[in-house]
Computed example of a mutant assay.
Amino acid sequence: MLKDLLKDHEIILASGSPRRQKFFQELEIPVTIDVRPVDEVFPEHLKEQEITDYLSALKAEAFKDLKDNQVLITSDTIVYNDGEALGKPKDHDEAVRMIKALSGKDHEVITSVCFTTSNSQKILNHTTRVYFSELSDEEIEYYVKNYKPFDKAGGYAIQEWIGLIGIEKIEGSYFNVVGLPTHLVYKTIKELLKV
């Protein structure tokens, strides 16, 4: 499919996330992984998708040397709860606090994806609403201790044990909660390459 049409182009994925890398394998889109350090700080006045749009574009700034046949993909995901952006927890206690704040309520998972070429940039975003049932302290402690979700926005992964027992429903893309709105990524790559 798309991979045959990409033979004259190189897709660079600037993400160390194994989940995002696996999505591209499953989409059958070959990518080169190139992760460059970025200080992920955003202005305090930004809200919701403004934050992820800003950070996904910020990550692209580390790449000043794109060739004409390269497409750079950078992305950022946050959990947005009660007007606060939850990134990745620093430690066990912060992960527990984050999940307790989500327990018994709904929140948004927002992902922005930035597509950068040598002469253009396009940013898209997708929001999924996630509904958590009430979780006990024991369930939360068990999850954090055994699954160590310190590389996950909001301190949890929908595809793990806590998602199986705690998520009542979602509105929007499931794959967005895992890490990428894959349907939009596929569509945008096709549009960018006019294929």
Rank of each mutant, 00 (worst) to 15 (best):
K100L: 12
V71Y: 02
H92V: 09
V144N: 10
V185N: 01
Y147I: 13
D76M: 10
S56I: 12
D137P: 01
D76S: 01
D53K: 02
K67Q: 15
V144A: 08
G154W: 15
A85N: 06
Y147A: 11
F63N: 06
V109H: 04
R20V: 01
L58G: 04
E108S: 12
K145E: 15
V113D: 03
S75I: 08
H126G: 00
K22A: 08
G179P: 01
N119W: 03
Q70I: 08
E138G: 10
R20Q: 03
L180V: 00
N69C: 05
L124Q: 09
E168W: 00
I170S: 02
L180W: 02
L102S: 05
S17F: 01
N176H: 00
R129M: 11
K22N: 10
D91M: 04
L5D: 01
N119E: 15
T52A: 04
H92Y: 10
I29T: 00
T117L: 12
E94K: 04
K47R: 14
S17A: 05
E61K: 14
N146M: 15
R20F: 00
Q49P: 02
E61N: 12
S75A: 15
L5N: 10
I158T: 00
E171A: 12
K47Q: 12
Y142H: 13
A57H: 08
D137V: 00
M98H: 05
K152R: 09
P18Q: 06
